[in-house]
Simulated scan of single mutants.
Amino acid sequence: MSKQPERAIPVRVDRWKPENPLLDSVINKYVDEARRDACDTTGSTGTLTGGALVLIAFGVVLAAGSGNPILAIVVVVTLAVLGLAFTGVQSPPLKLDALQILEPMGGPGNLPAGYLVHPLAWKAGMPEYLVGVPDRRLRIAVHLCRMHPGAVTDLLRLVERAEKHVAESKPGKDFSPEGRQAEVLRLATKMVEHQVRNPVLARR
């Protein structure tokens, strides 16, 4: 199966993106924790610690046996450099499950809708969360994310409902793909405006 091309971070026409320093700091915290956990699971830390202890013991034995501590230091340093180089080549890549980064917050889909266009969200699993979402749906969601009062997943579901309604009821006169998209955007915009006036409906 061919790999899907990596999506670029969507950018709104007005270049807007949400500003929430508190939420950003929380996301950064989870990203850092996920990276640390990924590093720990590779075993690199334990390997380096064990190797360092072995080299120290070897250096002590060599210095005592040869009577030349300088030679022992040179040998130990050389072996350490070679060992680090080998570890860097042989270590497996970090296995970071991006969808798990924001799991304590409910996942990327639970972020406010505006985070569809926030670079930080795209470092914390948003591309993986959007796998399977058609580009046409994402474009409309990006257009509406600034005004939508709910979460990313709520907005995507709203746009999907608008798509289904347009496909079934066939409103308008332009039945080209562009015309259908315009109808979906028109309907989805009305739905979002209704939710803005009635916030309790935003998560339905």
Rank of each mutant, 00 (worst) to 15 (best):
D97Q: 08
T49Y: 09
A98Q: 10
P21I: 08
E103Y: 08
P134C: 05
A8N: 12
I27A: 02
R186I: 11
R197C: 05
L130T: 01
K173D: 12
D32A: 15
G43T: 10
R157G: 15
T47H: 14
H148I: 06
V54Q: 13
L48N: 05
P171M: 02
L102K: 00
L55V: 09
G150E: 12
L94D: 04
K173G: 08
V76P: 02
H118D: 05
R12E: 10
P127V: 01
V26R: 10
E160N: 08
G88Y: 04
R204L: 15
Q195C: 14
P199V: 11
L138C: 12
D174A: 13
M105R: 10
G107K: 09
M1I: 05
S66L: 13
G43Y: 02
A202I: 04
P10L: 06
P177W: 08
G107D: 05
V11N: 01
P69A: 06
P149S: 09
R139D: 07
V76Y: 03
A167C: 02
Y30N: 07
P108L: 05
L130E: 01
I56K: 13
E19K: 14
M1H: 10
L185C: 04
L111E: 02
L55A: 13
L94Y: 05
S25E: 13
P93M: 02
P104L: 05
A113Y: 06
G109Q: 05
S91L: 13
E178F: 01
I70Y: 01
L71P: 04
A63N: 12
I101E: 03
P199W: 08
L201C: 15
I27G: 06
L201Y: 15
I140A: 00
A63Y: 03
P69S: 00
L111F: 02
V54L: 15
P134H: 01
K95A: 08
G179P: 06
K123P: 01
H148P: 10
G50H: 07
T153L: 14
S66K: 07
V166A: 07
A85P: 00
D135Y: 00
R146M: 10
A64M: 14
L185G: 01
A85M: 10
R15I: 07
R180F: 04
V89C: 05
I27F: 00
L156D: 06
S2V: 08
A85N: 07
M126W: 04
K17E: 11
L71K: 05
V192I: 14
V89T: 11
Q4T: 12
S25D: 09
L158D: 06
V166E: 03
P127C: 03
G59W: 00
A113I: 09
A121H: 00
R12Y: 09
R36A: 11
V117T: 15
V166G: 11
M105V: 01
E168I: 15
T41M: 11
I27Y: 01
S66M: 10
V31G: 02
R161F: 08
A162H: 05
E6N: 06
H118N: 09
L48E: 06
D32T: 11
M147V: 09
G51E: 10
P108S: 12
L111Y: 01
F175N: 12
Q4C: 04
